[in-house]
Design a protein around this nucleic acid. Structure first.
Length: 760
DNA sequence: TCTCCATCGTTTTTT
DNA sequence: ACGATGGAGA
């Protein structure tokens, strides 16, 4: 009996095929992580490959950690020498050693999106760019895309002949790169691009890594971009032992440059590549898998495949529609409480998945109210919070004073009486002398026209110099506390004595504890804990990496963040046209955008192991105004036979019916008119303390009278026109005039008595 | 130089 | 609805 006996035949084939290029097309839940870990174990145990000759690239640090743990359990020892990391951290490791070969300092800092924005703003000012015409966001995304495709400013300029707009962008791009280099900084995309540049320009470096990484594995291959592809091909070109695992149906990162051609064209680039398909799903019930298969089948651009499973049929996929987002959230909170109370599920079994981060708020509110422990993944990054960022910029300045962005951020935080005018003068001088901002500060007395600002600048420089000298012998934690102490940052917040200030102090405390856990982690690995290392870790951790599987909380996150994860119970919320798929996608000319959105839906559905609930709201507050959305087309793509609409519950509780209770109706009207939290909360039917199994009937309609069983926003069927959505209802003399937007025939007005509309 | 208020635009999705 | 930004006034 060996560890490989538990694998199915194609899995085993993938594990044993170690030499030469290999493409594993692994459907959702088909055990690809198992294959990868067993493959690493096989290489080490059976093929006597040295662990340090193996490189495995994962999508997140969390996945890397998990993979390492699992390999550890399989092979006993040696797993710690395998390089398992994300593209970004692998590149940082390489660059820290060799980037001096291409003109950077090995102590470079890494810019996050915030820093990038600040920098690009500066540049627009400097180059006198009209930011109405060229939005900073747009410029950054163009630069980022160029880097994803390994396009240099020179190349962009060459391509821009006759294209004024592109020429302008190239100009900004060039200036942006120059500034980054001056600041001794790299942005996220640079990490990949500069590594490729390094390997291409230094033959010896390339060779050493080719020798080192004789076996390379890439997970989530469908989401690699061109630069990452180039990087992998360079490294693998010597031994060609490249194994990539992916699923074209789960490609959801095109917006950040992921090139689906990498997976679709793998066999062309690596002739003789072996292709193995893993199509048996071990994760989900048959109902869930069927639903997923039917949705994704609507995509044209895909490698045909059908996932199957031997798992039980399981419960049907639930679909529930609610009047508004509050009730949707209340329902989900209620279901989770109920499952916990009945001992069916612990909190950690459930995940709420949504399209956009903004949707988390309603759920957060209800979870607080219902005392459900939860963790929101993503959204505003912890390290992007103002107070955290401020303090980090002190640390960054201490580490790399050439980082102008960091220095300028903190020079007047807290207030030192150094204003924009003074900063501007220093800036001009630095530019004129071609030195860094900080170096200009150090020779401030030479800068003309500073006046009384000079002494303040001196004070700042002395302060930083003192911290720099202390950094030599202090731990990161001590240094951070020193900064807090000396700047009076926390003290100032304490005096504010507001709720907000207290939250900020809490965040700062959390930052301090992060320095401690960093210290501990390094000590455990026998590595020195450095300031540089700490800053690097912070730059590269994704929020998802901090999720602790031992904690019992409900996870709330975007579907993007949920990639690669699985849960016994999944709530896919906000399933409405206009939300998911987003209205930008719906109105887009490009049909492939809808396909990407559908793949995202597929990813969402396939996260669920046993229970899947899809929810939608008829009306929703978006950007301050009420929107009426119809049920998502993706929901409608799931055949009825796999779906439970939950009608029967409603009949059991007639007292909940709006038509039996005028009071309830007026409350609903209020909720309808104002969409206010108050109105919805008074209707707290899902309160965890309330009777179990209470379900608010979806036929709880808001119309002017109680003789129609549908309302605005409802989906209805007409005998002739088919399915449509109610847009408007006007009370006429005898009858109601109903406006309906039909799928096939468009908008029609009709009398309710005549039309015999049937609510779906 | 700082603070307060009005105006504007903004939303996908993330390493 | 919200946060960022810019202008006006202290």
């Amino acid at each position: 009996m060996s560890i490989y006996d538990t694998l199915n035949p194609p899995q085993r084939e993938a594990v044993f095929h170690t030499e030469g290029p290999l493409l594993i097309l692994a459907g959702a839940g088909s055990g690809k992580t198992r294959v990868l870990t067993h493959r690493i174990a096989y290489l080490m145990d059976e093929k006597q490959v040295n662990p340090w000759n193996i490189l495995a690239i994962t999508f997140t640090n969390k996945a890397a950690q998990e993979m390492r743990d699992r390999v550890d359990r399989l092979v006993g020892f040696g797993a710690e020498s395998v390089w398992v990391s994300t593209f970004h951290s692998a590149c940082v490791r390489i660059l820290r050693r060799h980037i001096d070969r291409i003109g950077y300092d090995t102590s470079f800092t890494i810019y996050d999106t915030d820093d990038q924005k600040t920098l690009i703003k500066d540049i627009c000012k400097r180059l006198d760019i009209d930011t109405k015409q060229y939005k900073e966001r747009y410029l950054l995304s163009q630069i980022s895309h160029a880097k994803d495709e390994l396009i240099t400013p020179d190349e962009m300029e060459r391509k821009a002949i006759g294209d004024f707009r592109l020429k302008k962008i190239a100009e900004v791009y060039r200036e942006y790169q120059t500034s980054l280099r001056k600041n001794n900084a790299l942005d996220f995309d640079d990490l990949i691009m500069k590594t490729v540049e390094l390997l291409q320009s230094c033959e010896d470096v390339l060779e050493s890594y080719q020798e080192r990484f004789r076996y390379i594995m890439v997970d989530e291959y469908q989401d690699t971009n061109s630069a990452q592809f180039k990087l992998v091909s360079l490294l693998a070109s010597r031994y060609e032992n490249l194994c990539v695992v992916g699923d074209d149906d789960q490609s959801i990162y095109r917006f950040r440059g992921a090139n689906i051609g990498n997976i679709l064209g793998f066999e062309r680039v690596f002739p003789g590549a072996k292709v193995i398909r893993l199509e048996q799903n071990y994760r989900s019930t048959r109902n869930i898998l069927n639903a997923a298969n039917h949705v994704i089948a609507n995509n044209v651009e895909r490698k045909a495949k059908t996932l199957w499973t031997e798992n039980d049929e399981g419960a049907k996929v639930n679909f529930r529609q609610f009047l508004n987002g509050f009730e949707e959230a209340e329902y989900v909170a209620g279901e989770i409480s109920k499952a916990k109370r009945e001992g069916r599920r612990s909190y950690g079994d459930s995940a709420i998945l949504y399209r956009t981060n903004a949707q988390s708020r309603l759920f957060e509110e209800k979870f607080l109210l219902a005392n459900i422990p939860y963790k929101i993944v993503g959204g505003i990054n912890f390290y992007a919070r103002k107070e955290v960022k401020d303090l980090l910029c002190y640390l960054k300045t201490i580490e790399n004073a050439r980082d102008d962005i960091a220095v300028r951020r903190i020079i007047n935080v807290p207030k030192r009486g150094i204003g924009a005018t003074t900063i501007g003068k220093v800036q001009d001088y630095a530019e004129y002398m071609d030195i860094s901002f900080y170096d200009a500060l150090r020779v401030a007395e030479e800068i003309p026209g500073l006046g009384r600002g000079l002494s303040k600048l001196d004070g700042f420089v002395t302060f930083i110099q003192m911290l720099k000298s202390k950094a030599a012998y202090m731990t990161v934690k001590e240094l951070l506390e020193e900064v807090i102490e000396m700047t009076g940052y926390v003290e100032e917040l304490r005096q504010e004595n507001t709720e907000e200030a207290r939250a900020r102090i809490e965040n700062i405390d959390e930052l301090i504890s992060k320095t401690v856990s960093y210290q501990e982690a390094m000590e455990a690995e026998g590595k020195p804990a450095t300031l540089e290392g700490f800053l690097e870790e912070i730059a590269l951790v994704a929020d998802i990496d901090t999720v602790d599987p031992d904690q019992d909380y409900v996870l709330l996150m975007t579907i993007h963040s949920a990639k690669g994860l699985e849960f016994p119970t999944v709530y896919l919320v906000g399933m409405e046209d206009g939300i998911f798929p987003g209205y930008l996608t719906i109105s887009s000319e490009d049909p492939t955008e809808m396909e990407e959105e559908r793949r995202l839906c597929y990813v969402g559905i396939t996260r669920a192991r046993q229970e899947l609930t899809l929810t939608a709201a008829q009306q929703r507050m978006t950007r301050g105004e009420v929107q009426y959305n119809r049920v998502s087309r993706f929901v409608r793509e799931i055949p009825r036979e796999y779906v439970d609409l939950g009608h029967q519950i409603q009949k059991k509780r007639p007292q909940m019916n709006a038509f039996g209770s005028g009071d309830a109706l007026s409350q609903m009207k209020m909720a309808f008119q104002t969409g206010s939290a108050g109105a919805a909360q008074r209707n707290n039917a899902y309160s965890p303390s309330g009777p179990p199994g209470v379900f608010k009937p979806r036929d709880f309609q808001v119309t002017k009278a109680d003789s129609l069983d549908y309302g605005v926003g409802d989906t209805v069927r007409h005998i002739k026109f088919g399915v449509g959505i109610v847009k408007n209802i006007v009370e006429g003399g005898r009858d109601y005039e109903v406006t309906v937007d039909f799928d096939k025939t468009g908008v029609k007005k009709m009398f309710a008595g005549f039309a015999k509309l049937k609510k779906l």
